[in-house]
Design a protein around this nucleic acid. Sequence first.
DNA 1: ATGGGGTGTTTAATCGATTAAACAAAATTA
DNA 2: TAATTTTGTTTAATCGATTAAACACCCCAT
Lengths: 339, 339
Amino acid sequence: MLKRVSLKDIASQVGVSSALVSYVLNGKNTGRINKLVAQKIRDTARELNYRTNQIARSLKTNRTNTLGFIVANISNPFSSHLARIIEDEAAKSNYTVLFGSSDENAHKFRNLIETFVNRQVDGLILAPGEDTADQIVYLKEQQVPFVMIDRYYPDLDTNYVALDNFNATYEAINHLLACGYRRIGMVNYDTTIFNLNERTRGYLAALKNEANIDGTETLRVVMNRNIRSDVNKVMDELLALEEPVDALLFASNEIALYGVIHLNEIKIKVPEELAVITFDELISWDLFYAPLTYVKQPLQQMGEIATRFLIDSMEDINSVQQLVLPGSLIIRESTRSKA
Amino acid sequence: MLKRVSLKDIASQVGVSSALVSYVLNGKNTGRINKLVAQKIRDTARELNYRTNQIARSLKTNRTNTLGFIVANISNPFSSHLARIIEDEAAKSNYTVLFGSSDENAHKFRNLIETFVNRQVDGLILAPGEDTADQIVYLKEQQVPFVMIDRYYPDLDTNYVALDNFNATYEAINHLLACGYRRIGMVNYDTTIFNLNERTRGYLAALKNEANIDGTETLRVVMNRNIRSDVNKVMDELLALEEPVDALLFASNEIALYGVIHLNEIKIKVPEELAVITFDELISWDLFYAPLTYVKQPLQQMGEIATRFLIDSMEDINSVQQLVLPGSLIIRESTRSKA
DNA sequence: ATGGGGTGTTTAATCGATTAAACAAAATTA
DNA sequence: TAATTTTGTTTAATCGATTAAACACCCCAT
C-alpha cells in the first residue's frame, strides 16, 4: 500500500503548520483563518488526494463513527434485510456499520462483542440468542451504548425495539379461526428466547379466548441441532393425529421453509388439506404454488428506531427507550377460507 | 463508555514500565524477561480485564487486521453465503471482515471503497458491478491489495477467482439438449458485466455446436430498473412465439425467482410445458413444486481462494493470481427428460 | 506610549501501543 | 581485578490527527 498523504504533507507543501491544515479541513476556527491560505490548503488537499486517517483521528477523539450490528444469522433474509436498513439509517448520521453473525451461538456472540469493543465501535445493535444475558449485563456495566432488536430480555432495563409477538400471533390464529379452521397446530423452537415464546403464548391465548380450544395438544417444538428432520417428524405427527391438524402456524421463517418443502414431498395440498401461516416477508413464499400468508414485521421502522435509540444512548448513556411494534398479517392463498 | 484499561494502568499497578507490559503481553523479548514479573503482568492484565486498544495499535503498526468485502447485493443469498465463508476463512488468519453492499450502483461502490480505504483496511475483496473499471485501476495505482470474486475484468491484470461461466452454461444447455429439449430460451440482464455475458456466450455456443441451433432468436434481456415486469414480459413473449420455448435458462437467481413466480401466476406446468434451469443453490428452489435444476457455484472454494489470493497480495503486492473454477449441474425435477 | 483587543498562525501535549536503542546491574570470562 | 557478556528493564521516539494555549502582529483608544 502506497504511503498515504498526511496533514503534514499538505502543511509542508503549503508552508504552514499541520495544525492550521487540520483547522481548515475540519472547518474549525473558521472566523480567523486567512481566506487565501485556507483556499490554498483546500486546493492542495484535493490535489494530493488527501484522505483523513481515521485511525489517527479515532485515537485522539475516542470515536470511530462505527456501529456494530450482531445478527442471529446473516443468511436469514430477516437479518440481511434489517442489516440493509440499519446500514442506510446509520449512514444518515454518518456512521458505518460493521456486521457480525453469531449463528445463534452464545460463544460466537461473546467473541463478536469482544471484537467490536476492542475495535472501539461507538455502539452496538444486538439480536441476542440464548444464554447471552450475562453479556448484556456486562455491556451495561461497562456502559457501552447498545440497543437490542427483535430479541430482548424483558427483565433487563435496556434499550430495545421488537415486534409485539404476542398480539401478532394472536391475530394470526384469529384469522385462521375466522377462516373456519379449528385444528390449528404450531411448530416452534425448543428455546428460552423470549420473543419466540411470546409467539407460543399468543397462539395458546388466541385458541383459548376465541374458541375455547386447548392448543397444547397440537403444539410441537423442534431442536435447533436437527431442525430439518425434527420439523418433518412433528409435521408427520400432527398430520397423523386421530383428529389431524387442518392448519399450521410456523413460528419462524426457517421452520416454515423446511415445513413447506416437506409438504411438497409428502404432497399435502395447501390450503385444501392444510392451511399455513408463517412469519416474515420472504420472496420464497411466492415460489410455493399457494403463496403463503405471513406476519409481516415492520423492519423499516424497527431498523430506524433501533438506530435512533442507540444514537440517543451514545449521547446520554442513561437514556433507556423501549418499544414493541405491531405486525401486520398479509393474507394470501395458503389460508383461503374453508369451503 | 467507561474509560478503558491501558498498558499504562497495568504498568503502574505492577510497578514497571508500559514497554515491558507490551513486550510481555505480545510475547516478544521472551528470552530475557523475568518469569515472575511476566506472570504478575499477565495476572494483572487479566484481573483488570485489559483489552488491547486496536486503534492505537493500528496507528503504530499500520495494520488493522481487517479486510473489506464489497458485495453486489447483500440480500442476495449468493452474497450472504459468500460473506459467511469469507468471514470464517479470514478469521483463520486473524482478520475481521467488514461488509458493504454496493447494490449494483457504481457510485455506492466508489463510496464504499473510499470508506474502507479511509479506515485502513488491509485489503479488499470485491464483486464489482458495471462501470467500476476506473475504481479498479485506481486501487491498482494506489497499490491497495485486492482480489475480485465472481465478477472480474478479463483485460485487467488483477487477482480474481470466479466461476467458469462459459463452460458451466454450456453444460447446462447440453443437459437440456440431452433431455430432448430443442426450443431453449434464455433470460439475461442487459449488461456489460463480463461473467453474465459469458453465460450468454456459453448458451449460444452450446446450441450452435451441439445442435446447430441459432439461439439468438430465443435470447432475451431485461433491465435492472424494472426487472420484475421485464421478466414477465419476455417470458410471455417466449411462450407466445409461433414455436414457443420448451425450456428456459435463467441467467441469475434473481431472474429465476421472478421467473418462477410468474410461472405460478400463469400456471405453466414445469417441466411438462417448460423445463427450467437456473444458477446458484437457493433453498427457494425447493419450495417450487418441481425443484429446480441449477448450476451450483463452488462458493466454499471461491471464498477460500479469494482470501488466500488476497493475503498473498498483502504480503507481496506484485503477486497476481487468477483462477476460474468449474460449476456443477445439480439435476432435479424441473428438467425431467421429455417423454 | 501603553495597554487592550483582534487576527492569523504555531507550539506542544495528547490519545495508547510499539519498538529500537539505551541503560544498569549481575554474571561470566580473561 | 578489569573487561566483557548477559540479563532485565526503561527511555524515548513514533504513528497522524486534534486542540488548548501561546505567540506575534497589527490596530486603535486613552
